[in-house]
Design a protein around this nucleic acid. Structure first.
Lengths: 343, 343
DNA sequence: CGATTTCATGGAAGGGCTTCCAAAAATACG
DNA sequence: CGTATTTTTGGAAGCCCTTCCATGAAATCG
């Protein structure tokens, strides 16, 4: 009396008076099933409310129809947008999305060794973190398709933003506005976007023969989200404002930090104007009239998801590296005049 | 020469000179394995880098260690926060989180019949949508543990916010501030939070013997996210401002709409002050100094996730209904003085 | 019309695990 | 030391599919 357990392929086969192979073929759209049989099977199946058991399928087919999305603790606005487009692409292709938020991007390695990895997913979308070489090796060994987003590695399909270039562009924007004394509020020093954005900043100053004042380059202390937080921006700006001599403009390494910085400025002496730029162009940026560098997040997400699907079909494709140059979005926070300082 | 395929339990058993049953027991912490054997197996397993195949496990055990999270298109700030706490609870318990974003909450029913549902997950966390009765029946039949968040049903564990009450509280706040002419900008008319919040609004006015002006109650047109969007708030407010006679205060059914409404006001005649309140207390609200009703999102998420785990262990628990009264957060947007209007 | 070829079908063999039962080994008991 | 218990162990059966091979039926051909 296994009466109310979900029906299996055997139940359907029996009820439709066909073999299990035929039922299976029907459900896999295999061409060699006569129309008669096919429709009979389908009718029976729908009467029994039959659905193939995904686990059994996964086991037999050696695939799971699920892909893992690995990203830093996903509270950040940046990821919500990407997730959305990723889900849309994967969902349409019939894949489930398994989410793994990593609390501290630092220990990505550790959390990646969890059993989830093996055999549970057909592919991995890996975001914004540095993947330890040994983990990468492991995935290669298991030949699990892998795509990087917002991070890169020569051996892996990578979709990322040209941070150095973006940062240089925004810095140059400030320079063009006449600023000479420019500072930078950065994320945690050893995070790779932080390093790259710092480089772009330096490059721009150098190219324009402007001095780099080390006092004006403030890195976030080690902390959550690698310092890409409001709080980090707020404190950094407070620190900057406390200096005897301050810059007239500040390049901030992310919008969210820039917003924190704006708050710090607002709290301070209102006379003390200071130009501020962000990076990311998150939704919020518009409200704060924040000049920033727009990253094509949804586009990157969708492209990466598609690439993953492609790679799952054709492993052995050579890895591609696709970079995006972020776009300068000018708003009011950079419209502060440089103090007449030049002499 | 199946040399570089992942090792199976048989490989480990052979290498450790034990039976497969023993290996299995080791990996399931079954007590009746001698310490010697256990450690020998573990050593071999780690040498081979063995990990049990989750699909095979799922098939044999009839469970998957994954839970499905069903929510309206997850771009909304509200959900990010909940997701975060849910993931943390489930992750700690060793469960994977499979995400399904529903684009149009209206057709939840349709998308829920996708094959994913069956056998792929051990439980479902269902957010903020109305679950069609027949779908609910189906889940009951399959006895899939189910927990509702931000929505409720007597037969299902539900964690939700008391919208009616919250809406009344915020409306009363405006009344206490001296407002008499109060309007409401609501989400799509037939969404349940919209209905409830409208009721709370009406109740408050009625109780204080204030008139309800139907012209001042504006519902969002059918659209994405049930009208819980900036755009919807913006347009509704424009519409309201265009009226010959306007209210001095407006209760808005969500923060995100309220922010849109604020934008509309800002664009309009700057002299025309109007008090505005939101609902949710999303992160943004603070920046806009928005008076609003705070919902304990993380708490709800965590409780719901825990409940789901509990229910998976003990099916047959009676459903519990837990409601949360949102908390009034007073900020500046409600500090606009009521125009001296009383006569 | 008999001989090929093509099409549709049934079902065994696997996929990798858990679980149960029976058997072996270790331990306790008198 | 023999017997009764208890602890460990091995491995068949089963979880529910897909896939491949073999077979029978239908269609095609000369």
């Amino acid at each position: 009396m296994k009466s109310d357990l979900p029906p299996t392929i055997y139940d359907i086969a029996r009820a439709a008076k066909v073999g299990i192979g035929t039922v299976s073929r029907v459900f896999n759209n295999h061409p060699s099933v006569s129309n008669d049989t096919r429709s009979r099977v389908l009718k029976v199946a729908s009467r029994y409310n039959y659905q193939p058991h995904p686990m059994a399928r996964g086991l037999a087919r050696r695939r799971t129809n699920a892909i893992l999305v690995y990203l830093p603790y996903f509270t950040s606005f940046f990821f919500v947008e990407i997730l959305q487009s990723v889900q849309s692409v994967l969902g349409d292709a019939g894949f489930d999305l398994i989410l793994h938020g990593v609390k501290h991007p630092g220990n990505a390695a550790e959390s990646m060794q969890k059993p989830t990895t093996r055999g549970r997913v057909d592919g991995i979308l890996f975001f914004s973190m540095k993947m330890p070489e040994e983990v990468l090796k492991e995935y290669e060994r298991l030949s699990i398709p892998l795509v990087f987003v917002d991070t890169h590695h020569p051996a892996v399909d990578s979709y990322f933003v040209e941070n150095v270039r973006g940062s240089r562009i925004v810095t140059e924007h400030l320079i063009e506005k006449g600023h000479v004394d420019i500072g930078m509020l950065n994320a945690v020093r050893d995070s790779s976007p932080a390093r790259e954005r710092l480089k772009g900043f330096r490059d721009a100053l150098k190219e324009h023969d402007l001095p780099v004042n080390p006092e004006w380059i403030i890195h976030a202390p080690p902390g959550p989200l690698d310092g890409f937080t409001k709080e980090s921006g707020y404190h950094a700006m407070k620190q900057l404002l406390a200096l005897p001599k301050r810059p007239t403009a500040v390049v901030v390494s992310s919008d969210i930090q820039a917003i924190g910085a704006l708050e710090a400025v607002r709290e301070g002496n209102p006379k003390q104007k200071i130009a501020i730029t962000g990076f990311d162009d998150i939704d919020l940026a518009r409200y704060f009239e924040l000049t920033t560098m727009r990253q094509p997040m949804s586009e990157m997400g969708a492209l990466a998801a598609n690439r993953l699907l492609e790679r799952m079909q054709h492993p052995g494709l050579p890895p591609i590296q696709r970079s995006f140059v972020p776009e300068l979005i000018v708003r009011k926070t950079s419209a502060v005049k440089a103090v007449e300082h030049v002499s």
